[in-house]
């Protein structure tokens, strides 16, 4: 089954690539803003999956699309909280390097 001349696998490859790019960015980048952007990548790769599976497998239903919308909303909320945190961290440490924030240890 094919739509827009693109097989389902195409979407999945894109989404998987985005997901692991997001993971990679989250694990190796030290800047909190960049890490937040990586999280957005991960979330959106999942959104792509939702939408793709929805329109390829169950075109008569809309759950996948709505779920994607919910994720977008959650992501927005999450981003606002995260940015608020980052601003506070900046006020305290005068930078936003993740390695400096290691107070919460043994």
């Amino acid at each position: 089954m094919e739509r827009y001349g693109i097989p389902l696998e195409g979407f999945l490859v894109i989404s998987t690539a985005m997901f692991f790019i997001g993971i990679y960015g989250f694990l190796v980048r030290k800047n909190l803003i960049t890490m937040l952007m990586s999280i957005e990548l991960i979330l959106n790769s999942v959104n792509i999956n939702f939408v793709a599976f929805n329109s390829y497998l169950f075109p008569e239903n809309m759950q996948g699309n709505f779920f994607a919308l919910i994720v977008v909303a959650i992501a927005a909320a999450e981003a606002s909280v995260a940015i608020a945190l980052i601003i506070n961290i900046y006020r305290r440490f005068s930078n936003i390097e993740v390695e400096n924030i290691d107070e919460m240890k043994y």
């Binding site: 993971i23 989250f26 694990l27 190796v28 993740v98 390695e99 924030i101 290691d102 107070e103 919460m104 240890k105 043994y106």
Partner: peptide, 17 residues
């Protein structure tokens, strides 16, 4: 084993992944 609790967010995330 307390070294695992390093306080480094990315270590935790790595193990989580």
């Amino acid at each position: 084993i307390k070294g695992a609790q390093s306080g480094q967010l990315q270590h935790y995330a790595f193990f989580f992944v």
